[in-house]
């Protein structure tokens, strides 16, 4: 197996985080380029750690504690630890209120379903009758109660002015439409008596001959 270079693994190796540290160690023992690179990384780290550090200062801790104390004394109530419970309580209250209002709005805006009633005068009469019955039952004087005005004429209601006999009906019809009136009959009772007397004569042998003759004369 070929011993490959370990340049990419040297960073983790010098930090003690390499997975295959033993193999890297063996490689470094005979590979000059990788070993030199490791030395450069170690020197780089040493220089970084040699960078001057800030000095410890008692004033630093004093300033931190002063800021903490100032914030605690100046912190308004809404920044105290009560903030979260207060928000939670407000949220629950808003939720309950919203649900309650929503329920009320549903009740108010959604009347029970009604079947559309035709604008029928019979229905109106039933209403009037029921109202009258209620008034009568309550002992009220209904003598002055006017008859309800029907919203529309009932086409099936009997007309008091309608003709009651066939002749009257024909008269009305003739007055309304003269061209439709039946024509005056040309063959009346007098014609029939004359025809019977003729039958007694010897000139006409049969009824059929009489009728044919009558038709030709007409």
């Amino acid at each position: 197996m070929k011993d490959r270079h370990v340049l990419d693994e040297l960073s983790a190796y010098i930090d003690g985080e390499a997975k295959d540290a033993d193999r890297i160690t063996r490689h470094l023992q005979h590979c000059e380029s990788c070993a030199r690179h490791r030395i450069e990384l170690l020197k780089l780290g040493a220089h970084l750690r040699a960078l001057p550090q800030p000095e410890e200062s008692a004033a630093f801790a004093a300033r931190v504690m002063a800021r903490i104390e100032a914030q605690q004394t100046a912190r308004p109530f809404w920044q105290l630890n009560l903030l979260i419970p207060a928000f939670a309580g407000t949220a629950v209250l808003l939720l309950v209120t919203t649900l309650a209002l929503y329920g009320l709005s549903l009740t108010a805006s959604s009347p029970p379903m009604q079947i559309a009633q035709p604008r029928n005068t019979w229905v109106d009469e039933e209403v009037v009758v029921s109202e009258l019955a209620a008034l009568i039952n309550s002992g009220a004087d209904v003598s002055m109660v006017e008859e309800p005005v029907l919203a529309a004429e009932d086409p099936l209601a009997p007309d008091p002015e309608a003709p009651v006999t066939m002749d009257e009906m024909l008269t009305v019809m003739a007055a309304a439409a003269p061209e439709l009136a039946p024509a005056e009959p040309e063959f009346g009772e007098e014609d029939l008596e004359e025809m019977i007397s003729t039958l007694a004569s010897d000139e006409v042998g049969t009824l059929e001959e009489l009728l044919v003759e009558y038709m030709h004369e007409g």
Binding site: Q53, P54, E55, E56, F60, A61, M65, I68
Partner: peptide, 21 residues
């Protein structure tokens, strides 16, 4: 309060150094 002050004192230098870099 003194305990927190001790924490500040312990980590003051490394924390300021980290922030500085």
């Amino acid at each position: 309060t003194t305990a927190f002050t001790e924490l500040v004192r312990r980590y003051q230098v490394p924390l300021v150094h980290f922030c500085q870099r």
